[in-house]
Design a protein around this nucleic acid. Sequence first.
DNA 1: CTCAATGTACCAATACAACGCTACATTCGG
DNA 2: CCGAATGTAGCGTTGTATTGGTACATTGAG
Lengths: 125, 125
Amino acid sequence: MIVEIDPDAVAPPYEQLRAQIAALIRTGRLSVGDRLPSIRHLAHDLGLAAGTVARAYRELEAAGYLRGRAGQGTVVRDIPHLPESERTARLADAARAYAAAVRELGVDVDVALATARHHLTDPGD
Amino acid sequence: MIVEIDPDAVAPPYEQLRAQIAALIRTGRLSVGDRLPSIRHLAHDLGLAAGTVARAYRELEAAGYLRGRAGQGTVVRDIPHLPESERTARLADAARAYAAAVRELGVDVDVALATARHHLTDPGD
DNA sequence: CTCAATGTACCAATACAACGCTACATTCGG
DNA sequence: CCGAATGTAGCGTTGTATTGGTACATTGAG
């Protein structure tokens, strides 16, 4: 698994982990039926407590991404698609946050859009 | 002053206030020499504690935007421009955050860019 | 000088996250 | 059947961030 946790980031570790796994499933790097590392194993690899990984798994299961069963492990269950309204609302929130940051920095709109395009097309940077 | 605080937002009130005032100064809606509302007055208007507004003012003063003196009030001091490296770094952070949200939502890149453009050009929405 | 208005500094309470830990239920393999 | 591995649930502790309130210092007006 390609996951990175930054302890100094603003987002708490369990949230970073949740978002990254969700993105891996969305982008197809994890497919339906794939088995995820065990809670304890992943926690050890990432230097986290088991409870922290458990929380990320729990939220992903509640969202429909995963299915975890005792003794069997946790597997990718589905790629849930949110209702259109929910998705556009969340997208608007994210765009608003980006726009606010850009405005505070005094960055030109075209530069901001080019930067966004760059990060949207080149995830690894 | 045109400021809105959403108590349910992810960002804490003092940070929302700080960012909005910084944006007002950057965009010229507040000019150098303009006097801001007093800490207590603004706190009362926004339904916040005085200490919360004081923190926003304090951080803006540390960043060079404001100058506050006891008995005199707080005025816009300057429009500090960050070093280029700092600005691009912060812009990249914001863009990364936006890209991560888009990827998790499974939204098309073009849709994401159009949404970003919309919010960048139409602040009031 | 006196006083009101203002910014500054500090402290207690609260909430949240993370951690380490324990106990328990379930599944599978031997 | 038995044990190892797994997920689930909960506990108390610790550290941090935020808030609200209070006391203090400074300034300018009368």
